[in-house]
């Protein structure tokens, strides 16, 4: 009897701030969206080329999160739940637009700055990293982000992207190889300039 009790699964708990938002308290909703927006923007930026569309997609992602919020049951971290929605929406948007999105990649000139946040060198490092991703084919980029940023497994990625397992593995392998090559060439270019 005692063993049965010990094996009982604790009911999932929803963080109070999320619960308040689910119940429709406007302030709670606003606070929650403001809290998750930086992470949402970061994930979107990992997935899309350039800075230009980040805020538009992030805004759509917030809407999608709000739509799905009543369905959140507290199973797993709230941030991870949000990440999956954001990734799904972003990839869908990219697929939808790719036929007419062959324009040049555009970067914000870091004009929009705000005080606080991570240290400048960490920020710059992340910006450099994502610009390396911008050189990858979009399919390879997506598996790399899903795997390394969202910690999805190969089967999970295959399900998320709707492609065979082998395709995911292949894309992951090619993406890593290409990144490594680009990083080596970049380092050599930097060394030769000095």
């Amino acid at each position: 009897m005692l063993r049965v009790v010990s094996l009982a699964v604790a009911p999932p708990s929803i963080p109070p701030r999320v619960r308040a938002a689910i119940e429709g308290e406007e302030t709670a909703v606003r606070d929650l969206l403001t809290e998750i927006l930086p992470r949402v923007r970061n994930l979107v930026r990992y997935l899309v080329r350039g800075d230009e569309e980040v805020d538009d997609i992030a805004q759509d992602a917030l809407v999608a999160v709000l739509e799905d919020l009543p369905g959140y049951r507290g199973e797993g971290r709230f941030e991870a739940w949000v990440d999956r929605i954001v990734a799904r929406l972003t990839i869908a948007r990219i697929r939808k637009r790719r036929f007419f999105s062959k324009r040049d990649t555009q970067y914000n000139s870091d004009l929009m700055l705000a005080s606080g946040g991570a240290a400048a060198d960490e920020y710059l490092h992340r910006r450099e990293m994502v610009q390396m991703l911008d050189d990858l084919p979009i399919e390879q980029r997506h598996v790399l982000v899903l795997h390394h940023a969202l910690d999805l497994t190969v089967p999970e990625m295959a399900e998320e992207l709707g492609v065979p397992l082998e395709t995911v593995r292949s894309r992951l392998r090619l993406a890593k190889a290409r990144l490594r090559t680009n990083a080596t060439e970049s380092a050599e270019d930097g060394g030769s300039r000095q």
């Binding site: 930086p38 992470r39 970061n42 990992y46 914000n108 991570a118 992340r126």
Partner: peptide, 11 residues
């Protein structure tokens, strides 16, 4: 991936 600055440009 977190809520800190980067890789998205700061706003």
């Amino acid at each position: 991936l977190d809520a800190q600055a980067g890789p998205a440009s700061r706003i």
